[in-house]
Amino acid sequence: MATLEIRDLQVSIDTEQGNKPILKGVDLTIKQGEIHAVMGPNGSGKSTLAYTIAGHPRYKVDGGSITLDGVEVLDMTVDERAKAGLFLAMQYPVEIPGVTVANFLRTAKTALDGEAPALRTWVKDLRQHMSDLKMDSSFAERNVNEGFSGGEKKRHEIMQLELLKPKFAILDETDSGLDVDALKIVSEGVNRAHQSTDLGILMITHYTRILRYIKPDFVHVFVDGHVADEGGPELADQLENEGYDRYVAASAEAATPAGA
């Protein structure tokens, strides 16, 4: 069983004001088949964690490690991480002019499998996944994310998740900007992927709303670049009622030097 292990991960970004630390020692272990929710206030570093795992060049790793079954992920290029079984469903997927969804997906599948998928089953699969996510068949011929609504972009991300079959998926605020119907459709897609491929999931969210549809096994509270609290699904309920104030206040106190 595959395991994704994050140890003492420290990450910074270069800004115009200089280098800014974002993650200050994150520890997290996810086993295949598990669903983890990472929750926290804005600016706590949740998305940084997601993009660092995927290997976005903007984020500079200053220390720690991310291993997948003992192999250092940080040494891999972005595409090698995908080939190793990691997938990031992005919060703001970019538009790629002139590249059709069908062409893009086939190229990605070919790259991941090392061979082109058989045409007949591929077309059938694609249609099935699109209809599962209530996407119009014309979608395949549109350019990647171009002119997509917010909901369409998220459904497109989840379609890729189902099609590319990774071992671990990081969902970066997949619930944001979705109405209830779209949220249900997207959540069903995630649950399907979870059941059919024993997917491990790291679900990053600001709100508890999505947790009604995707049930987490573990909840981690993220504050100021580290995990401030951990627990089972009950922790999400507690957060729904109390918010993040308690953690944020504690973090601010800790940041104040003693005697100041």
């Binding site: 995927a54 290997g55 972005v78 595409d79 991480r81 970019v94 790629i96 190229t107």
Partner: peptide, 30 residues
Amino acid sequence: FDDEHLFYLESRGIPEEEARRIVVLGFLSE
């Protein structure tokens, strides 16, 4: 290049050289 385009494609397993090809071709084939 818009590196975000490259990142998106690479994060789906497409190697850098191939991703560059796709982005440029897409840009022009519009």
